[in-house]
Amino acid sequence: MTRETVLEVRDLRTHFFTKAGVARAVDGVSFSLARGEVLGLVGESGSGKTVTGFSLMGLVDPPGRLVSGSIRLGGEELAGLPEEGWRRLRGRRIAMIFQDPMMTLNPVLRIDTQMIEAIRAHAGVSREAARERAREALARVGIPSPDERLAAYPHQFSGGMRQRVAIAIALLNEPEVIVADEPTTALDVTIQAQILYEVQKLCADTGLAMIWITHDLAVVGGLADRVAVMYAGRIVEQGPVDAVLDAPFHPYTHGLIGSVPSQNRRGERLTQIPGMAPSLLSLPEGCSFAARCPRADAACTVMPELSELEAGRLARCHHPHRTLETARGGAA
């Protein structure tokens, strides 16, 4: 990929300092994102995918804190930015879509009030110009008769339509990056497909880059260019969607894909990953997946590095599944 990089995250660490101890929700996450690219950030509950998204938006509240790492958006460093700097940035250059659109929408204000406010917070344009931009944004996400809908309140929309409005608001100031946190999880299949269709078109047409946070590997397979799999606060595997889903390196990715019922294995037992995710408060020494891993051995008591096993493909494992006969065995 030679496309220009818009977002570069290096060694991001966000920890929560609770009474029970330090929860390392995000612990050394690195990735980059190019223009027009969709990166699927996949993981189960508690894997740190949402906290990663919030960290990119500067939305981590105490007791959580961004401990270290760098977030570069178009060359500008965001980590350590004061609140005022974040305010100027959020919604203008980087925006977020939440699982529940009512996190974005104010229930007692009309859609036009909210949208015009969001535009005028960042750009010195007249109300009329802002209103026109709001109308265009609604039309772009496929809302029929946007002129009338501008005057409606959020409760007058269905769930799918509300999510479209939330996406339209995220698009208002033409950000470079959108962080989408499970935006279609609560929606029905046909409505989900409508949203995915709009999102796909937007990224292709406008060069918008997107981080799509989800637990649903099937959605990632259909939508994303690259995928990063998170487990216990770290990225365990990263690479192009096809390669990762067809021939995963990491045993966790392997197990995760085996857990999804698929067409050609009707009625067979699903591969199950034994046990459950470890508590972030008391992560084991070494590889955090070792306790559930069928390939674990003595080497796994040392934390493996995220290393490039093939061009563009990273995995954090001492014993990755090899597609070709290149396995040398032993620790890397």
């Binding site: 497909a193 259909g222 096809d242 889903l245 894909i257 698929s262």
Partner: peptide, 14 residues
């Protein structure tokens, strides 16, 4: 509309 893990980079036609 069912997203499937075996179908990649599909064009959604809702």
């Amino acid at each position: 509309e069912v997203p499937r893990i075996d179908t990649r980079k599909r064009v959604f036609q809702p």
